[in-house]
Write a protein that binds this DNA or RNA. Structure first.
Length: 269
DNA sequence: CGCCAGGGGAGCT
DNA sequence: AGCTCCCCTGGC
């Protein structure tokens, strides 16, 4: 059990920000998270966070996962003070962090996300994990499941994933898994690429367009300059910016600002 | 029952 | 860059 006082961290906001589909609210102050083969519970009261895990896992994994070394207050402070909308949005979502999640899981998750709502995305992913992931047991003695590796999903038929409620998106996931297994796209090399190059590489995957590629860059490769444009961001841009968000003001951390706008649009107002 | 929207994408012009 | 068509579920 690890206790820390953390600034600009709100596990509830992170859970609702739509970047992680394997985080659940257990009760008012407690959330559970599954990442790789690890299970964590966090309790938060104000700035005081309790991580229910071993010191070693916290230092070697979760600290990085939650991007705790990064100063998000510094990002928020750079919001243009004349941009009242953005200043308010950043304040409203000031506890959000860009999680450092698994590249393959993010790729599959955001393939599933298209023309889909967050609740059903969660259910799709839970179905896939329960059916094709590996079983583990948490510290409470409860079972949980890992996200299946590319080679597992590559061996499936499209209809197998339709049974997981993916609908027409199942062919995207199966074909992409095969592209990774047969080496058409080298996932290990993506981590060493700059944003633009990684994005171009991801766009080669069947079912990955600009929006999904940027989500993968932001959440799976931690490229903070990636700025996914979806329907909500587009609506906000029309309402408040005459059509296009001024992301050139935020070079290098465009994606952080995107999250504040997105979170405001789905949870604010 | 029909309609429509949910963090789009492919394929074409 | 903009258009059409594609296409699955759940809510109304």
């Amino acid at each position: 059990m690890i206790k820390r006082m953390i600034e600009y961290f709100d596990i509830g906001q992170i859970c609702n920000s739509g970047q992680c589909f394997r985080m659940e609210k257990k009760d008012e102050n407690t959330y559970s998270i599954i990442a790789l083969d690890k299970y964590l519970e966090i309790r938060q009261e104000g700035k005081e966070c309790t991580f229910f895990c071993q010191e070693e896992d916290f230092e070697n994994f979760w600290k990085n996962y939650f991007d705790l070394e990064e100063d998000y207050g510094a990002y928020i402070a750079q919001a243009d003070p004349e941009d009242i909308y953005l200043v308010n949005a950043a304040q409203f979502g000031c506890g959000i962090r860009i999680l450092q999640q698994d590249l393959w899981e993010m790729t599959a998750s955001f393939l599933i996300s298209q023309q889909n709502n967050i609740q059903r995305i969660r259910r799709c992913i839970r179905n896939i994990c329960e059916r094709y992931g590996e079983e583990r047991v948490n510290f409470r003695g409860e079972q949980y499941y890992t996200f299946p590796a590319p080679k597992v999903l590559a061996g499936l038929h499209e209809d197998d994933l339709r049974e997981c409620n993916l609908g027409y998106r199942s062919k995207y996931v199966v074909r992409t898994a095969r592209s990774i297994v047969n080496g058409e796209v080298d996932f290990k090399r993506l981590h060493r690429m700059e944003y633009e190059e990684a994005r171009t590489e991801l766009l080669k995957l069947y079912g990955v367009g600009k929006k999904v590629a940027d989500c993968i860059c932001l959440f799976g490769l931690h490229k903070l300059e990636a700025f996914p444009v979806d329907t909500h961001i587009l609506q906000a841009a029309k309402k408040h910016y005459g059509g296009r968000f001024p992301k050139e003001k935020y070079l290098g951390f465009e994606g952080v600002m995107q999250q504040y706008v997105f979170y405001w649009e789905i949870c604010g107002g």
